[in-house]
Amino acid sequence: MILISPACRDALQRWLEGQRALAGAAENTLTAYHGDVVDFLAFMTVHKGQSQGLGALERITVADMRAWMARARSDKISSRSLARKLSAVKSFYRWLAAREGFEPTAVLSTRAPKFERKLPRPLSEDAAQAVIDTVQLQARHPWVAARDVAVVTLLWGCGLRISEALGLTAADVPLPATLRITGKGGKERIIPVLPVARDAVGTYLDLCPHPMRAADPLFRGVRGGRLSPRIIQSTMAEARMQLGLPATATPHALRHSFATHLLAAGGDLRAIQELLGHASLSTTQTYTAVDTARLMEIYDRTHPKA
């Protein structure tokens, strides 16, 4: 931050506050935005050899942008990460240009590097069920086993993020037919709760030794505190090792599995978008590529080339 002028620092802070208040950006997103824009502003200070006040930012050229991206590539920053950084810088510049009344074309016209989007790696239905069965056998205490089964079942059966599942409180039980979940960026969505998920949570509640007051976290650690995501990640890691599943078989892969299995069963893409809480349909559309890739794998196995 020492390389950034006070005016730029203040402008960046106001932009971030706007992203929080108006766009509902999550704290992790704001942290990433802050780091990306600070990196850009600090580079421009060194590149230009002088403190970059707001007036200097108006004079950023296409050549300056190319120099910044070249530096990033020399630092071995991936194309995906550089595209994310550029997106943050452009968003900041749009806001700044509207506020200060200058033309941001040099920044906004900069093309993001191309990169191959990674497809989600879901588990098959059999593998997902095997994970639940294996998780049930791993814990030393019956209530811990029931807890882990309940969490994993919610991830797969409801498409929850691990943070969303572990964010449930005792006030949410007994689980209703639908859950109102607040996801990334404060976006709310309504999730149908399958009977198997309600039953799994009910079994856990029957065995859990810790008191359940309305404000208490639903899922508890052994000592009674809020369950850490690392515990579930570790539990999944043990299960996949026992089952011989790839390293991509993580808790988040169960959310991918939820979406992919719905799509394979004929689910509507828009409906799946709503269930997952994706802001953009393009994010949900990656699952159609997964489904197509799987079909091609089956085709290649069953129809060998002559």
Rank of each mutant, 00 (worst) to 15 (best):
A171P: 10
D172I: 06
D172N: 14
V173K: 12
L175M: 03
A177N: 08
T178S: 14
L179N: 10
G183A: 04
G183P: 02
G183Y: 01
G185K: 05
K187D: 03
R189S: 00
I190A: 05
I191S: 00
P192A: 05
V193S: 07
V193M: 04
L194D: 08
L194K: 13
P195Y: 08
P195C: 07
V196K: 14
V196H: 11
A200G: 02
V201Y: 01
G202V: 08
Y204F: 06
L205D: 11
A214R: 01
L218S: 05
L218Y: 06
L218G: 00
R220L: 14
G221P: 11
G225D: 15
R226P: 13
P229M: 00
S234K: 15
A237G: 02
E238S: 15
A239V: 12
A239N: 09
R240C: 01
R240N: 00
L245S: 08
T248W: 02
A249R: 03
T250V: 06
P251F: 01
A259R: 07
A259I: 01
H261A: 03
L262E: 09
L263W: 06
A264P: 01
A265Y: 07
G267H: 09
R270D: 00
A271D: 03
I272F: 02
Q273V: 08
Q273W: 04
E274F: 12
L276W: 04
L276Y: 09
L276P: 11
A279K: 06
T283H: 11
T283E: 10
T283K: 07
T284Q: 02
Y287N: 03
Y287P: 07
T288W: 07
T292K: 13
T292I: 10
A293S: 09
A293C: 03
A293E: 09
L295D: 01
M296P: 12
M296H: 15
